[in-house]
């Protein structure tokens, strides 16, 4: 199962990068970035998965004594959890800049912004 999820994550990264590089519209590029970041998160969670084990939360089903043999690696999950929240902040920032650029120039086409190009 980890293989399937990891392959899906890699495919999503490729699709997202393709979408972000070939489109000229800024909103479409941001959508590509979002899909690529979802793929990265999926790959990182899939690396931590182990067959036949369960979530790293101890309760009646998983007593403390069995923890070492029954739970999966909790560290990638902690990393991905923070990465998702930061991803929303980054997306909001990109969208705010997009809106501001649209107000300034009246277009969303990124090839129209040539001030810093040389």
């Amino acid at each position: 199962m980890a293989d399937i999820a990891m392959a899906t994550g890699f495919i999503l990264i490729l699709i997202g990068i393709f979408g972000a590089l070939t489109n000229r519209n800024m909103l479409r590029m941001i959508v590509g970035f979002v899909i690529a970041s979802t793929g990265v998160n999926l790959v990182m969670v899939a690396v931590g998965y182990m067959r036949g084990r369960t979530a790293p939360i101890l309760d009646d089903a998983v007593p403390v004594a069995d923890a070492v043999t029954r739970i999966i690696d909790p560290l990638p999950q902690a990393l991905v959890l923070t990465a998702i929240v930061i991803g929303l902040g980054v997306t909001a920032l990109m969208l705010a800049f997009t809106y501001r650029l649209f107000v300034t120039k009246g277009t969303l086409d990124i090839s129209k912004f040539r001030e810093l190009k040389w």
Partner: peptide
């Protein structure tokens, strides 16, 4: 439609995380 599709991707990724035994994520 494009934005809706990216929302669908993130929604299904959530279920996929659950199947990978990561309920927090």
């Amino acid at each position: 439609i494009i934005i809706l599709s990216s929302g669908l991707v993130s929604l299904l990724a959530s279920v996929q995380y659950l199947l990978l035994a990561a309920p927090d994520v």
